[in-house]
Write a protein that binds this DNA or RNA. Sequence first.
DNA 1: GAAATTACATACATTCATGGATGTTTGCAA
DNA 2: TTGCAAACATCCATGAATGTATGTAATTTC
Lengths: 221, 221
Amino acid sequence: MPRRTREEAAATREQLLDAAERVFRDRGVARTSLAEVATEAGVTRGAVYWHFRDKADLVAGMCQRAVSPMDAMVERAHGAAGSPLATLRGLCVEALVHLGRDRRAHAVFEILFHRSESGGELARASERHEDDCRHAKARVESLIARAVAAGELPGDTDCTLATHAVHAYVTGIMHEWTLDPSAYDLAVRAAALVDAFVAGLAACPPRRAAAVRSGHARARA
Amino acid sequence: MPRRTREEAAATREQLLDAAERVFRDRGVARTSLAEVATEAGVTRGAVYWHFRDKADLVAGMCQRAVSPMDAMVERAHGAAGSPLATLRGLCVEALVHLGRDRRAHAVFEILFHRSESGGELARASERHEDDCRHAKARVESLIARAVAAGELPGDTDCTLATHAVHAYVTGIMHEWTLDPSAYDLAVRAAALVDAFVAGLAACPPRRAAAVRSGHARARA
DNA sequence: GAAATTACATACATTCATGGATGTTTGCAA
DNA sequence: TTGCAAACATCCATGAATGTATGTAATTTC
């Protein structure tokens, strides 16, 4: 079948991304050839190499299509007014609920966490993903700083480390839940999971190292 | 060089595992051939195939050598007397400190998280690893249940979900820290990170699904 | 309505990892 | 001392994946 119309070409591109999600999730990125992706999509390798430069480009396209909704969440949270801590809580819950409900997000995050390796040929895709993560973390740190300024968190909260903690927790939940989605219903339990952590943040957050003007005894042994 | 003595053979086995750690971390598991591992270790592929059945067996050996100290921590914590919650806290901190200090643990966890994909040829290794994880989670759930029994956590705490939360948090910290170890000193900050979460667990843990009719008042401890 | 280009399919050359077979010393036991 | 097997090294055949080059029909564009 040579030369379809523009819309048909866009459709085959989507089919290729859909096929990539299925095959990569089932067999892993490195272990599956582009020929398998093509046959799964009902086309030949020619179509793959027409739409994507190589496997890394295909993976990048797959990621972008799945991650963009989450990026939008982060941006909305960053622009939101009201309690920063409540906004942060809502953002975390929203992201986890989305992962628990959206089939595409589920597949792609499973691939990113468990069925692919960064570096090597996927360097471009993984670096782009890490850039997105850094951007999201900067937004989260801004939220936490605003929470400190609003008195929702202690004044000597270490905002950077708290950001790492939040990100690690949400990422860890995604990482582990995609490993066994049958363990619990993520969309239902997301709020409870996030609330436990936010309560801990508010009650006992990591503090900035007060090494400067402390007359206190050092915590060393 | 044929036929070394027993101890020399054991030494080359260790050299192979060391080389695997370096090469897999630098280039990823799937993208590196066993020939690269061999030359990195100063031997040929013959030695690799003598000591290990295939790449999956090599990875499994590498994992076992690095994970066994953490397994020992879990077992010690499981057998410990005293406050269950304090024991859990100590276990999490100890594991993170170990990751932050031990070079081998650092390399292998970086490989497991970011430089390998489960399934496929590494099915045996990854299944074994997941078995270990399940075992560790069972130990943690036992600790949390004891904390509930001791009154350190609310009576209607959902122990299973709390276990998932603890595991997700610790795993998430490992996952993210290995991505950028220069972000902070894990061994120094581990206690603060864990304390924030344990405080949240104690203050606002996930509760067992109250399975009540809607419109009813919230349950409490 | 021709020309130019798109959207693929097909064929091909090259590279490269794998695993098994085989060779070759040497440590160790009888 | 012989004999066997351990501990590798070397060689080879196979297959598979990649990227490119080319073919081709339909579709825009002018």
